[in-house]
């Protein structure tokens, strides 16, 4: 009994922690321990999410951001899978360039956005291009890894059955490498969301990133906190959803 009191289930403990945290924040803010212009109390921030919906076209901005994320992810995934396939098929090219793409995966690619700004201007193309570039390295690396690790024995079985090249790809290679490729796609989607929102904020164009920049510029502090909270919740949901999809795919395999 005592153990349950001191160690409740993690989800309950998490809720208690956040309730206490927001409660302490509310009390400290109302008591004037810090200025409302620095950190308004949660009782002002949470209703401001509703105002984001009515006054700041929250839904349209959300759709715009996710439209850019999926456009970037689509382009990056298509290019990444084609390059990954080529690196798998051509062993010399694979050996020559895989390390380069691994280095790119660790490089601060988002810092290239001024180059895209110069190339495409201050519009959605810059945001989508920047997102697509961030999707490329994980998709390339995971596609190659997935294809490289398809067991030779099942490829040989396919050959024994006299499968054509296309049948081998459709019936053996793709199903066998899909979970690994999906891990790359999931990483790519998360990188795309991070970069798209980041570049939107930096160049002041697009959806949710622009909303944060505008509210900050207008010094609507409660609204700005609400917008940041909303972006954090969206990113967390996106992360959770793609993780569930990935585990479902692994089980379905």
């Amino acid at each position: 009994m005592l153990a349950i009191f001191f160690r409740p289930p993690p989800i309950i403990a998490r809720m208690v922690f956040f309730t206490l945290l927001f409660g302490a924040w509310e009390i400290a803010s109302r008591a004037g321990l810090f200025s409302r212009f620095i950190a308004p109390p949660p009782s002002e921030i949470i209703p401001a999410i509703g105002l984001l919906y009515s006054d700041n076209e929250l839904l349209i901005r959300l759709l715009r951001t996710f439209g850019e994320v999926f456009a970037a992810a689509g382009l990056g995934a298509l290019g990444g899978m084609m390059i990954g396939w080529w690196l798998h098929r051509n062993k010399d090219a694979g050996e020559a360039f895989t390390d380069w793409f691994a280095a790119l995966a660790a490089a601060p690619l988002v810092l290239l956005f001024p180059l895209f700004l110069v190339l495409f201007g201050r519009n959605a193309s810059t945001i989508i291009a920047m997102g697509a570039v961030s999707v490329l390295p994980p998709v390339i690396l995971k596609t190659k890894e997935g294809l490289d690790h398809v067991p030779q024995v099942i490829i040989n079985v396919g050959k024994t059955f006299g499968l054509t090249r296309w049948q081998e790809i459709r019936m053996i290679m793709l199903p066998a490498c899909l979970p690994t490729v999906f891990t790359g796609l999931r990483l790519g989607l998360i990188f795309a969301l991070i970069n798209v929102v980041g570049v939107e904020y930096l160049i002041g164009f697009g959806g949710m990133g622009l909303m944060i920049a505008e509210l900050g510029d207008r010094f609507e502090i409660a609204g700005m906190y609400a917008a940041i909270l909303f972006v954090v919740l969206c990113s967390a949901f996106f992360f959770w959803f793609t993780a569930r999809l990935e585990s479902w795919l692994l089980q379905a395999r």
């Binding site: 998360i190 991070i194 929102v197 980041g198 920049a213 900050g216 954090v232």
Partner: peptide
Amino acid sequence: YLAATPKVVFLPILLI
């Protein structure tokens, strides 16, 4: 979950 969020959106708070 916080690791998967774009950290640059916290910049307005850090600027304040």
